[in-house]
């Protein structure tokens, strides 16, 4: 079976325990205005263009740019090929308690491909994490959960209208899926991007906390600060960034938000 991925990153330190390899599956149903990985959104192969490297030769016609100014993003790969790349760091996984993380895009968008990869991983006794928006049919998530050790689950905006406005989709299914997933007792780590003026509003923070407190076992939550520099990527893909230039949240601001979550008895980290 084949799928489309856009990167395999080894020595991944922030996508679960230990030293990991993260496989990025291409394609995402969400359109978050702050998206740090715009190359992940389209499910198709795209061309990336770095003007500063261009030699103004004509080799791009042959798709053979020597300067790597023009580069394809995304490749069609088989599940076996992905596994061969993942298993190259098996010793490091063993020594570090790491494993593999499937991220995206939204990995569940390529459900069959993802499932096949997860089955392989379980055969190889690897620790598996899935980094998801939660925007997927419950039965898909449920099947994936059976083959996954840890979910990295995004939580962005609690108000449905705002969610629709800034990510392009409703959050009703996402929140329901999260509730159900918590009920299964699976390990979950929540990820909340802190985009000043959008996700760090008082209403959103308080609403998120209220929601989490209703859950049977509220998972720990990581607050991820916005990085304006990541927005430079849009130009390389000839895309328009919908998020107006936004200052990164200060350390003080992050600490303040962290304190809000902690004060409610939730486990939170930056």
């Amino acid at each position: 079976m084949t799928g489309i991925i856009f990167d395999v990153r080894r020595f991944s330190l922030h996508d679960g325990p230990g030293i990991r390899t993260t496989v990025f599956l291409k394609g995402c149903p969400l359109r978050c205005v702050w998206c740090h990985n715009p190359e992940s959104i389209s499910p198709n192969i795209q061309l990336l263009y770095k003007t500063e490297l261009c030699l103004a030769c004509d080799s791009c016609v042959k798709m053979d740019c020597p300067a790597e100014a023009r580069k394809a993003v995304g490749e069609v790969v088989s599940d076996e090929a992905v596994m061969a790349r993942v298993l190259r760091d098996r010793f490091t996984f063993d020594e570090s308690g790491g494993g593999v993380t499937f991220s995206g895009g939204e990995p569940l968008m390529q459900f069959d491909f993802l499932k096949s990869l997860l089955v392989y991983c379980k055969e190889e006794r690897l620790h598996v994490a899935v980094d998801t928006t939660g925007y997927a049919p419950w039965h898909h998530l449920q099947e994936v959960a059976a083959l996954t050790d840890l979910f990295l689950y995004d939580l962005k905006l609690i108000d449905e209208r705002e969610h629709l406005q800034f990510t392009g989709v409703s959050n009703v299914g996402i929140l329901e899926n999260l509730k159900k997933l918590c009920d299964t007792g699976k390990s979950i780590e929540l990820r909340m991007p802190i985009i000043p003026g959008i996700t760090d509003t008082r209403a959103n923070i308080e609403g998120t906390i209220r929601f989490l407190l209703q859950l049977r076992n509220p998972p720990p939550i990581w607050l991820l600060p916005h990085h304006q520099v990541a927005m430079a990527k849009y130009e390389r893909f000839g895309l328009k960034c919908k998020l107006p230039p936004t200052a990164d949240p200060t350390e003080e601001r992050m600490a303040e938000l962290l304190a809000c979550f902690k004060a409610s008895g939730l486990k939170a980290m930056i």
Partner: peptide, 22 residues
């Protein structure tokens, strides 16, 4: 920045152990 915190120490140590295992 890569080696920040206790986690950074752990990962550095794990990387060393991995190399020596090979």
């Amino acid at each position: 920045g890569t080696l920040r915190g206790q986690e950074g120490i752990d990962k550095l140590a794990q990387l060393v152990r991995s190399y020596f295992r090979m």
